[in-house]
Design a protein around this nucleic acid. Structure first.
Length: 261
DNA sequence: ATGTCAGATAATATCTGA
């Protein structure tokens, strides 16, 4: 089973790229972030025509996440528990059943949190606490779980081409990184890092100042695997080439292969 | 600090968020 995550930065602007990517990569499951549209405006029929079941948790203008799956998605959860007053569409979860078992998949758009020292950063940290609590709950089921998405966290200095440029950014704050580590320490593994310790693996390049041309990137899109999913991990890959397509998202897809039929 | 995008509102620009 192939599972991918991709922050598309507007699904309407990226529909052609999405079609090209799925035809080429043929993911069984594709988690999307930053749809920037409400459920009613999501290009559902176009994506169903590509062979996917479509589940969305959309929002006007901002945020919005989706899970596209060749197989049906069940036990669907929209929104992260822990704050009934949070109306930002940043979390969608479901279960896919196969002949060789199940896998629980989440599509996550973790808050950016900039600028630091404002309520936006507090919201990011509180959201990470809620994700931690929910992940802890999920782990008790002892299932293969893949928490996929744009975490807006640079885990380590080697995950940035120029770490010094990010020291005042919410994505690289000690608090953000510590909470990401605490999530990992529950028992998850970062799928890309399970396959490679190499520096220079990035999933995002800013649109500004020719960041991609200068390879001034960061790695912030992650797939975290529960122990039962780790056991089935075969490969992981970052589709850097997609950033070179015409009118790209600022993020590229990250793809893993699990030994599940 | 920002040379870029995308969406919304108002308007043929300006703002917000990333």
């Amino acid at each position: 089973m192939r599972i991918a995550t991709w922050n598309v930065n507007s699904i309407k602007q990226r529909l052609d790229h999405l079609a090209a990517f799925v035809k080429e990569a043929e993911p069984d499951v594709l988690c999307l972030q930053e749809l920037k549209c409400v459920d009613e405006a999501f290009p559902r029929s176009e994506i169903e025509a590509l062979g996917y079941n479509v589940h969305t948790h959309g929002q006007k203008t901002y945020n919005g996440v989706a899970i596209l799956s060749k197989r049906p998605l069940e036990d669907i959860r929209r929104g992260l528990p822990g704050d009934d007053g949070d109306d930002q569409a940043r979390y969608l979860e479901g279960v896919i059943s196969t002949s060789s078992g199940i896998v629980r998949v989440a599509s996550i758009y973790l808050p950016n949190g900039n600028p630091i020292g404002t309520p936006k950063f507090d919201y990011k940290l509180a959201w990470m606490d809620r994700l931690h609590a929910h992940a802890q709950h999920l782990l008790k089921q002892e299932e293969p779980i893949v928490l996929s998405g744009d975490y807006n966290v640079i885990p380590e200095p080697k995950d940035a081409a120029d770490p010094s440029a990010w020291v005042n950014d919410a994505l690289f704050q000690p608090e953000s990184r510590a909470k990401f580590r605490e999530l990992i320490n529950l028992g998850f593994v970062d799928a890309v890092r399970a396959c490679s310790d190499a520096p220079g693996l990035y999933s995002f390049w800013d649109y500004q100042m020719g960041a991609f041309q200068r390879n001034n990137g960061i790695r912030i899109d992650h797939l975290l695997l529960s122990p039962q999913a780790q056991d089935k991990l075969k490969t992981s890959a970052i589709r850097r080439d997609v950033r070179g397509w015409d009118k790209p998202s600022d993020h590229v897809p990250v793809v893993i292969e699990l030994d599940i039929e």
